[in-house]
Write a protein that binds this DNA or RNA. Structure first.
Length: 709
RNA sequence: CGUGAUGUAGCUUAAAGGAAAAGCACAAGCCUCAUAAGCUUGAGGAUAGUGGUUCGACUCCAUUCAUCACGUCCA
């Protein structure tokens, strides 16, 4: 105790990659979050001051477009997604200290501050570039929103960066018949001014950050080096250095969902500039809300504390190049470690929607038989500290969980707890003989090894050691045959007490050792399966286990009755998962189909068009609606009937301008109850909104009620 | 096409130039305390192919094949 208090206590800030607000969490995402959570839980058990911070990555074109397609504001969408993400994380027992959003005041302030510091350091430059532009949607197009025919092999429907079929690499401008996936329009090349961060000047800074990157991968294996990156990542970075660092385009033109850039017109910060700043923002909010930590202590350039980012290998580029460069040049501290993990494959292949293996977190959680901690366990059993891809083989998953968690681990308690209650009133021995405690000593001896494996994120190794111990415990029980002794006792009944006492003690001791072995295994597994561990703590009638307690034994202590702890998985549960997931996926693709159908990009059939009953309408009355900001109440004459319609055109028209005019309305639109009354249709108007709304006007002669076709 | 990574038993991984290991799955036997759990034994391998360096290669080099990732402003 005194030794550790003298040492300066290490404080760690840990982050997981921020999930993007344009999608649900799936099993692939969970690899990173479960890895981080497991690691953080170990830190907490060790008593290390460690904060686990995350949040939603909310900005960018995809979010903007999706919000539009759903007919909601971007804010509504990201709010909904954030809650959905949080629910999924909660389901898998991922426990953040704080979970924020990049669309927050804290983040805006920090981004602007960083930007201004970079600008002051003369690291921001304005340049004119040419970009593809969608003339119909009036917006610049990211590459991924352009498709066309491959210039080489003429395969249709290829993305702007390269052909999936012949693997030719090209730019979107090379595509034959390019079209915008948003509007279908042919993109045109348009000049625009963008802001660049001069990353090309940061090579020394970055190499310095990487520190002595000459060490080889093999040297790193047993000892955590001082380098912030694993060997594979260093290779990748070297590649990037070799091809030369290019300046980084950090601005995007309106329309864009993001933070406006100060002193610029219609320019926004690119989502990847503000995303990692979200780590800071989330932590800042956490500090302000809880007062548990001091933001500056952790983020100032001379911070003594550790900053670790857990990320997937797909975003190494941002975290290993831009992020340290930006931080360093803006006079903040840089990350100490980037822990990079690989992708998840399912049954050896990429997750696939058609095979039903693109499995959402929600689908898994919806199958009650699939304990979320089984997945945590499986990931832990497979995760090493390399950035290799990991595979979840669904058959292997079932076998492994059943065999390791149910057959080996839980079984140890299950097969001995009964005796403790039947014969010893639920109480463990007062003390153990040397012979009996020797098994437990081997457990205790392995604690340091296990801790180190966890620390170095070699969870697979940690699990291997733990399961070896579980095997030892089961061997011990088989060897000692407590059931034989128990029979002897019942046969002897109240015969001769001396023999009987001896046997009773022996049996008591065997069961006490087993329960203690079980307790230690639980302690070792707790970072991986925290909720199961909690149940065990209740069963053992003990306080929450921390790592220190591995050296003590549980003696002379009353435990509770053993209750069923974990259930086996059956193949049918996996089939169910695939099925549930497939259904959910179909729904998603259908709604997204519907969304594109309603957008102006796709065509509809004549039948679809014929469903819409368009009529000439005479506006016989128009009036303001009390309490409504945008609505006017219109009374429309369409020949034989009059309809009442609430139209969102107040910003562009005064009621008196409208009365008496002829326009076109959708007459068969389902009536909709609104706050101010029932609206029985829609009038047609053009324009983006605000003052720019123009309702349709008809030439002389059209009579109310005429069908428009 | 280029660059990088990976390829070991049915599955998941070890072996850092010195006898190819372990767990799960499989087979046989034992056991019955436990959720058909547990224990013992066994079978299972041209280490993707070819060529080279070496007394000796899963390991180092070259090359081929397969899979994956990345490839000038999507990052």
């Amino acid at each position: 105790m005194s030794e550790s208090t003298n040492k300066q206590k290490e404080k760690i800030l840990v982050t997981s990659a921020l999930p993007y607000a344009n999608g649900s969490i799936h099993l692939g995402h969970l690899v990173g979050y479960i890895q981080t959570d497991t690691w953080v839980r170990l830190q907490r058990m060790l008593g290390t001051e460690c904060y686990f911070i995350c949040g939603d990555d909310a900005h960018g074109t995809p979010v903007m477009l999706r919000a539009e397609a759903e007919g909601v504001t971007a804010e509504t969408l990201i709010d909904k997604m954030r809650h959905q993400h949080l629910e999924d994380f909660k389901g898998f027992n991922i426990k953040f200290d704080y979970y924020h959003s990049t669309h927050s005041d804290e983040n805006r302030e920090l981004v602007i501050e960083i930007y201004q510091r970079l600008k002051k350091a003369d690291l921001i430059e304005k340049r004119s570039i040419e970009q593809l532009y969608d003339p119909k949607r009036k917006m610049f197009l990211p590459d991924r929103f352009i498709k066309g025919d491959c210039p080489k092999c003429h395969e249709p429907d290829q993305y702007g960066d390269g052909c999936e079929k012949c693997h030719t690499i090209y730019t979107p401008m090379d595509l034959i018949n390019p079209f915008s996936t948003i509007s279908g329009a042919t993109p045109i090349i348009k000049k625009t001014e963008h802001l660049f961060f001069k990353l090309s000047t940061c090579e020394d800074t970055l190499k310095n950050w990487m520190q002595g990157n000459l060490g080889t991968f093999k040297q790193e294996k047993n000892k955590e080096s001082k380098q912030p990156l694993q060997g594979e990542s260093i290779n990748k970075l070297d590649e990037w250095f070799e091809s030369g660092l290019r300046d980084w385009d950090i601005s995007r033109d309106a329309p864009y969902f993001g933070f406006p850039i100060p002193d610029e017109k219609d320019k926004f910060f690119y989502v990847w500039l503000d995303a990692p700043v979200g780590y800071m923002a989330s932590f800042k909010k956490f500090c302000e809300l809880t007062g548990k930590a001091n933001f500056d202590d952790f983020w100032n350039a001379d911070s003594p504390h550790k900053l670790y980012h857990f990320i997937g290998k797909d975003i190494l580029y941002f975290h290993a190049l831009f992020w340290p460069a930006v931080l360093s040049k803006a006079n903040y501290r840089t990350p100490d470690k980037l822990f990079v993990h690989g992708f998840l494959t399912i049954n050896g292949r990429k997750m696939s929607k058609s095979r039903g293996t693109f499995i959402n977190a929600r689908a898994y959680l919806d199958i009650k038989a699939l304990n979320p901690e089984y997945l945590r366990y499986y990931y832990a059993a497979k995760l090493g500290n390399k950035s290799e891809d990991i595979d979840i083989n669904l058959k292997d998953f079932v076998f492994r969980v059943n065999s390791n968690l149910v057959g080996k681990y839980a079984n140890i308690a299950s097969r001995t707890a009964g005796f403790i209650h039947k014969l010893f009133a639920g109480k463990l021995c007062r003390s153990l003989s040397n012979e009996a405690s020797s098994l437990l000593q081997t457990f205790i001896d392995e604690a340091k090894t296990i801790e180190n494996f966890y620390q170095q994120r070699q969870f697979n190794e940690a699990i291997r050691v733990i399961m070896n111990l579980a095997d030892k415990a089961n061997e011990y029980i088989s060897d000692k045959k407590p059931w034989d002794i128990s029979k002897k006792i019942s046969l002897q009944a109240d015969d001769n007490n001396q023999e009987d006492d001896k046997d009773r003690n022996k049996l008591h001791e065997i069961c006490t050792v087993s329960i203690n072995a079980f307790r230690l295994l639980t302690l070792f597994l707790k970072p991986v399966i925290p909720v199961i561990a909690e149940k065990v703590e209740k069963f053992l009638n003990i306080e929450s286990l921390d790592w220190q307690q591995h050296s003590a034994l549980l003696l002379n202590h009353k435990i509770n009755k053993y209750k069923h702890l974990v259930s086996r998985i059956e193949d049918k549960h996996i089939d169910e998962l695939i099925e549930v997931n497939r259904k959910a996926m179909n729904e998603i693709t259908e709604t997204s189909k519907k969304q594109t159908e309603t957008s102006d990009a796709t065509t509809i059939s004549f039948e679809d068009f014929a469903k819409i009953d368009l009529r000439v309408a005479k506006i016989i009355n128009a009036e303001h609606v009390e309490g409504a900001d945008k609505l006017l109440k219109l009374t429309l004459d369409i020949g034989d009937v009059q309809k009442q319609v609430f139209a969102g055109i107040k910003s562009a028209y005064q009621p008196e301008q409208l009365i008496g005019r002829h326009t076109v309305m959708v007459a068969n639109l389902a009536p909709r109850k609104m706050r101010f009354g029932v609206s029985e249709g829609m009038v047609l108007a053009a324009g983006p909104g605000g003052k720019d709304i123009w309702i349709l006007q008809l030439d002389e002669g059209a009579k109310p009620g005429m069908k428009v076709q």
